[in-house]
Design a protein around this nucleic acid. Structure first.
Lengths: 127, 127, 127, 127
DNA sequence: GTGGTCTAGACCACG
DNA sequence: GTGGTCTAGACCACA
């Protein structure tokens, strides 16, 4: 895996280390990162995105605590052996449920009809 | 307006005061809150949702600074006289743009096809 | 709870932040820390033990991620509401199982009879 | 001595090289390894346990520095000639003192009575 | 007042 | 080479 696979937005309200953990969660769920795959080193990620190595290290540490990653002594971090891509579309979709519900609430607060929202989203999804 | 119109999630990562301000922005944009309409008092909102009055006060203050609300001496906060509901659908939709883009990114990271996402969202909006 | 309840050994091989997390786990399991109880502030703990506040903060953060603690905005960290003391002696004992097994392995490697080990431990336990 | 005599847990928090050194210390103290006895080669140990040869080499080096082992040119590492099994039970017990004290602290933090802990340990030792 | 985040840099532990 | 830990200090977000 290449350090460029991760997207970092330094100015987002969401802290950088959590941006990393959550991206890892999705990339592993989708199979873009496979069990046993070696992640880019802390220093590589930090250098590539011009952030502090400790920030990356913290993200890796939390991903390890969560069971997403494993530390291979002397080699680096790899995707945990027990992690298999989530095959079921509905289970992958479930990872977005909270976000979808929040979006729906906002649509209602704006009293927007469903149609334009769905069309805009479809466009963003490259339909 | 009634204190119960606001939805507060004290344990959400998003800070409470911002939850309030952003809801006000959407409710005013949609016309669910009309210019001149009286808002519930800081004490009522805080009591109803069991949150700190200072938090509500801060939210009202920021909404005032943003031009959403006006302070009517002796009465409380009201929706700013100059605020009209946003008629144009596309302008209201624009308020969701950032959220839609973030959602689209996550869909891609999960390698989900557009269709199930759109169907799930349609379902949530169809209630 | 008082900052002095925690024991920190700065020179132990086990990192300080993990010493804290693991102590919290045991103190909560035993009921010495009750659900809802307020923990000493990061700054208090750091000051009392002369360690860096970030080290304490990290420990609290991991305990929160593990579900041991909850953040009460503006007040500090409290023992998670859902945490109840472990009543069953056998379940509390289970928290020591790994350590007991490791000890047993070492006793075997030393070819020590059980008796003196048990007597020494009994003495340390204040029998 | 056979490579299988050593127990290695590659995923334990305790570093591998230290697992080896400490086991050697105990096996020599107990007389399971006798002065002059030939140790398995670095390659054998590394191959058998699927760990890095440098790790084994480092462990042997530290054991040598500690006076546990001696390098016999052309033969390999042997248990140091001056090493005699520790006869005194109390001296062998002393090698466990730190571990026993740590265990006792944890028992107290769990507010467990001495009895079940002692019984569980006795069971583990009785096999 | 509370905790959270990030930085820059030192130093260690491990393989 | 890898990651881990800790420090000192700045600054922010929240109540």
């Amino acid at each position: 895996m290449d350090a460029s696979l991760l997207t970092i937005q330094p100015n987002a309200p969401e802290p950088i280390y959590r941006q990393i953990v959550e991206q890892l969660r999705r990339l592993i769920a989708s199979g873009q990162l496979l069990a046993g795959e070696l992640l880019p080193s802390v220093r590589d990620v930090a250098g590539f995105h011009a952030i502090n190595p400790m920030t990356v290290s913290r993200a890796y540490g939390m991903a390890e605590a969560e069971g997403l990653l494993e530390r291979m002594r002397g080699k680096g971090m790899v995707v945990a052996a027990t992690r298999k891509p989530i095959q079921s579309e509905s289970q992958r979709l479930a990872l977005l449920e909270a976000q979808l519900q929040e979006l729906a609430r906002h649509v209602n607060e704006l009293e927007l009809p469903a149609d334009p929202v769905l069309r805009r989203l479809a466009k963003l999804l490259g339909d």
